[in-house]
């Protein structure tokens, strides 16, 4: 319990830091010194101190959406475990709450984008719903494979038992397949390369960034923060599935999990440095591959 609480506080405090790790990695590959490690925090503070400019087209939906997004992602965090550390609020079937609360977050982002009446934001919204529909299948089927493997329906139980047979135990193949699928889902859901480029400056090619074009100030800070926490949430799931270490002491588990998250950020940074983003028509294919990996994991369980 105390470690679950600690995990939530760490997430709240260090979620933006992971973004900074990714940026630093990319800077390293590019031979730049990169932004300061605390840059995301500086940005958040700067945005929180600003006023706001709203479009004349928008309705109350645009004003409310960012708050709901933050609430949704925090609720998701409450049911997120990390390896051996159970979630603050663990119950059978909590993984569905997690997936659908992230769905609520997406719903808010999308309708707020459509609220501005901008063609660019409509375009981003249209892409977002297409890709996430496919990502959701991969995510849920992957989790179903884990549920079938470890005979549990609670996310915390699933993550704790994921590597129950040890590093070379029988769970290995399933977990690796699921992890590969979850990695693609993580990249797609968090709008990273190769699905979306967080640094692009051309509205026509963006997905997530274009949907929040009209936001500024406090609202933008809320959205950026929510995006960082979302990365942390999905990252924790991925680390729980991919990290074959379950210690006896909770402090060890927490340290291993946090280390896993750091490594994940480094890996994402490397992927972003060595890859270009895919053409938009190729993205569904990538997500279908993730789905296929999840199904393979499941067939491996039932073999």
């Amino acid at each position: 319990m105390i470690y679950s609480l600690l995990f939530v506080f760490l997430a709240l405090a260090f979620a933006p830091f992971l973004m900074s790790v990714i940026n630093r990695t990319k800077a390293f590959f590019g031979g730049r010194s990169g932004p300061a490690l605390l840059q995301p925090y500086y940005d958040l503070v700067k945005l929180l101190r600003k006023g706001a400019v709203y479009s004349r087209t928008v309705s109350w939906i645009f004003h409310t959406a960012p708050s709901v997004e933050v609430a949704a992602v925090l609720a998701a965090l409450a049911v997120t475990p990390l390896g051996g550390i159970p979630a603050l609020l663990a119950f059978p079937g909590d993984l569905l709450f997690l997936v659908y609360v992230l769905g609520l977050m997406r719903f808010c982002v999308v309708i707020a984008a459509l609220d501005t009446g901008s063609a660019f934001e409509g375009m981003g919204a249209s892409r977002e719903v297409q890709f996430s529909a496919l990502a959701e299948v991969a995510l849920l089927v992957g989790l179903a494979a884990v549920a079938a493997k470890v005979h549990a329906v609670g996310l915390s139980d699933m993550c704790r038992e994921a590597w129950a047979g040890g590093m070379f135990g029988e769970n290995g193949v399933t977990m690796l397949l699921v992890s590969a699928s979850l990695l693609v889902v993580l990249l797609a859901e968090n709008s990273r390369i190769p699905v979306d480029d967080p640094n692009t400056h051309l509205e026509l090619t963006m997905i997530h960034e274009v949907m929040i074009l009209d936001y500024g100030g406090v609202d933008l800070a809320l959205i950026e923060y929510a995006a960082a926490v979302k990365f942390w949430v999905l990252g924790s799931l991925l680390v729980s599935m991919a990290l074959p270490f379950r210690g006896t002491s909770q402090i060890g588990n927490l340290a291993a999990g946090l280390g896993g998250l750091l490594v994940l950020a480094l890996v994402v940074g490397c992927i972003e440095s060595v890859m270009a983003r895919l053409r938009l028509v190729r993205v569904p294919q990538l997500l279908v591959v993730a789905g296929v990996l999840s199904f393979l994991a499941l067939f491996n369980v039932m073999r």
Partner: peptide, 23 residues
């Protein structure tokens, strides 16, 4: 959601909130 919305409203209370066209 209620708490975050309240916080946001509080932060924006004495700041300039303007209207413009969609970007």
């Amino acid at each position: 959601a209620g708490a975050v919305f309240w916080l946001r409203a509080r932060l924006l209370r004495h700041r300039s909130v303007r209207e413009s066209v969609t970007w």
